[in-house]
Computed example of a mutant assay.
Amino acid sequence: MYKILANTIFLGKDVHFLPDCHSTNDIALQMVRSGQVQEGAIVICGYQTKGKGQRGNSWVSEPGKNLTFSLVLKPAFLDITEQFVLNMCISNAIRKVLQDYVPYLTVKWPNDLVVPDFGKLGGILIENVISSKSWENAVVGIGLNINQLVFENEKATSLSKITGNNFDLQELFRLIITQIEQSYLQLKKGKHKEIKNDYLSHLYLKNQIASFRSENGDFSGQITGIDEQGKLLIEDETGELRTFGLKEVAFLD
């Protein structure tokens, strides 16, 4: 169904389409560890039964309606401490493509794609293979709600639900992979500052008063940015700047 991409340099030259599977990330990770695939390989599934999201959440997708795929990267040119810059790079690339259809699209830290007042459009889960010496591989799992109209989760939405249009999945796939490759090549050139600035300029709830929950209870504050490790910076109602890693803070808005 999904063909090898002709207009890319290395991404999408090895495409593995599965009508259905449990998790494209799990399959891609197995292929990486067994030496079956190289950088640029993509596993894409028509119906993913046990997709994974951040915080251990599941990703439920209606058959044949959405894009669920994983791509293999080899970011050995980055230090292990720079893992979040890859998250920003991928998030930026997908947002750039989808904002042509929903221009008010934002990125909810760390890497959910959210349309304010509508809901979550998609998410990204990066699972890394790291040795004692270097960052060997990154399997980038991407789930995007495209043509699905009914969701069990009331916080979920789709391009079709927002716009009223039906979308060509193969064409969107081509556009997204092409943009990811362009953004990844910029990352290879060391454009970290530009990538971070782009990410922050579309960060959900940045500089807005919102409600959050941490292990110490609920509080109000505003997101001011992220630190060098990608942790979220929130200035609370007392003026204290607090730092949160993954799973350490929840959005209540």
Rank of each mutant, 00 (worst) to 15 (best):
M1P: 08
K3A: 13
K3I: 10
I4D: 10
I9L: 12
F10Y: 14
G12K: 02
K13P: 09
D14N: 15
H16D: 09
P19G: 07
H22F: 14
N25W: 06
N25R: 07
N25C: 09
A28L: 12
A28R: 04
A28P: 05
A28C: 10
M31K: 14
M31D: 07
S34W: 05
V37G: 05
E39N: 10
E39Q: 15
C45Y: 03
C45G: 05
G46T: 09
Y47Q: 13
T49K: 15
T49I: 12
K50P: 03
G51E: 04
Q54M: 08
R55C: 07
N57I: 10
P63C: 12
S70N: 03
V72Y: 03
P75A: 11
P75V: 11
F84Q: 06
L86A: 08
N87F: 08
I90V: 15
I90P: 00
I90W: 00
S91W: 01
S91M: 05
L98Y: 04
D100G: 11
D100H: 12
D100A: 13
Y101R: 03
Y101H: 10
T106D: 00
K108V: 00
W109M: 01
P110F: 01
N111F: 01
L113W: 00
V114W: 06
F118W: 11
F118A: 11
G119R: 07
G123F: 01
I124T: 02
N128I: 10
V129T: 11
V129W: 05
K133W: 09
W135L: 15
V140R: 02
V140T: 07
I142F: 01
G143R: 00
N145Q: 04
N145M: 02
N147C: 10
N147V: 11
N153F: 12
S158Q: 03
S158F: 01
L159N: 04
S160T: 06
K161A: 14
T163P: 05
N165Y: 10
N165V: 04
F167Q: 06
D168R: 08
L169N: 08
L172N: 04
I176F: 00
I177W: 02
T178G: 07
T178C: 09
Q179K: 11
Q179R: 11
Q186F: 01
Q186G: 04
K188W: 08
K188T: 08
G190I: 10
K191W: 09
H192G: 07
K193F: 06
Y199S: 00
L200V: 01
L200R: 00
H202C: 10
K206S: 11
K206I: 15
N207P: 08
I209C: 08
S211C: 13
S214P: 07
Q222G: 14
I226W: 00
Q229N: 13
K231L: 14
L233M: 14
L233I: 13
I234K: 03
I234L: 06
D236R: 05
F244I: 12
F244V: 13
E248I: 06
V249D: 02
A250L: 13
D253I: 11
